[in-house]
Amino acid sequence: MADLYSHFHPDEHRFVDKAQEWIARAVEQHAVKLTDFLDPRQAFIVQSLANREGDVQVRFDGGYEQAERKRAIVAPAYRDIDEEEPGIGLLCITSDDTKFTQLDHGDFLGSLLGVGIKRDKLGDIHVGDGACHCLIASEMIDYVHLHLQQVHRAHVQTEMLPLDRLQAALPSLETMGLTVASLRLDGIVSDVYRLSRAKVLQPIKSGRCKVNWKPEEDPSKPLKEGDVVSFQGFGRFKLLEVEGETKKGRVRLKIGKFV
């Protein structure tokens, strides 16, 4: 087990234990486990652990093809899990309030959590022009439908819809160009959010930054194309492209900020 832990950040050890238990129960007790919604890093951990054990299989489902957050079905290898229900419901939130159009992802997430459910029970949240479509664990969707009456200061109505009526709002990226001295995490974060290097160092060291959903406490970690960085309180960005060096030896980058 100590060798297993060496592959994961200390903050992830509790989840590793939980995932290892799901897999052990599938192998030893022939149990089928439907997990809560997992972020991409958690899904990677589950799949990695399953790959180490030959007698187990995992299927991920987030309600639609491009889902970021997904539930997992962990089962013995012999079990046919293609027809297993992933336990995902769709809640449509609308409002006649003019303030509704000004609400963003964080407003909806905060209000959903405010009715008393855990983040693990929520999948992706899609904010559209006239409605917000939320993927919710089916065992909690009736509760949310009953209790969610306000988002921020806008009164709302909710309706449960079949999954095939999902209006997915794929993430939009606001692109920006940067020139940096190196690909160090702290330097790029400070430039993207226009903060001094000193102001990003401590938050990174204290675990408030993630690279590809994994906690990263090393400010000097080099980033690479495709990396997704989240900085607590400021949002997320993706390193889209390393475009080469300037004549002065600085590195040109194309960054996409999630909006």
Rank of each mutant, 00 (worst) to 15 (best):
L49N: 14
Y78F: 15
C92W: 06
T94M: 03
F44Y: 12
L90Q: 11
G89Q: 07
K70L: 09
R71M: 07
N51G: 00
G54M: 00
T101W: 05
N51V: 02
I93F: 00
T35W: 01
T98V: 05
D96L: 02
T101C: 08
A77H: 07
T94A: 02
P40M: 06
E84H: 07
R71P: 15
V56H: 08
A75H: 02
L49S: 10
E53P: 14
L38S: 13
E65P: 08
V46E: 01
A67Q: 07
E68Q: 08
A67F: 12
R52C: 04
D55Y: 00
D39H: 03
F60Q: 14
F100R: 09
R79A: 10
I73Q: 02
T98L: 09
S48M: 05
I88S: 12
L90P: 15
G62A: 07
R41S: 06
K99T: 10
A77T: 09
K33S: 14
A50R: 10
R71E: 01
D39S: 07
P40G: 13
L34C: 04
D97W: 04
V74L: 01
F60E: 11
K33W: 03
R69G: 15
L38W: 01
A43I: 03
F37I: 12
F37Q: 12
V74H: 10
F44R: 02
A75Y: 00
F60Y: 13
V46W: 10
D96T: 10
D82N: 07
K33M: 12
G62S: 01
E65Q: 13
P40Q: 06
T94D: 01
R41F: 14
D55T: 04
A75Q: 02
L91H: 14
L49K: 08
E65G: 05
V74K: 00
T101N: 09
T94Q: 02
D82H: 08
V46I: 10
A77V: 08
I81V: 08
P86W: 02
G63A: 11
D97A: 00
V74C: 09
A75L: 12
V58H: 11
F100V: 04
K70Q: 15
G89M: 04
V58P: 13
I45Q: 12
Y64N: 12
R41D: 06
K33Q: 07
L91V: 13
E53G: 10
P40R: 08
Q66E: 15
I45V: 14
P86V: 06
T98K: 08
A72W: 08
K99C: 05
Q57N: 06
T101Q: 12
E68K: 07
G87E: 04
D80S: 05
D96H: 06
P40W: 02
F100Q: 07
R79E: 09
Y78I: 04
K99D: 11
L90T: 15
F60L: 15
K33V: 14
L34Q: 05
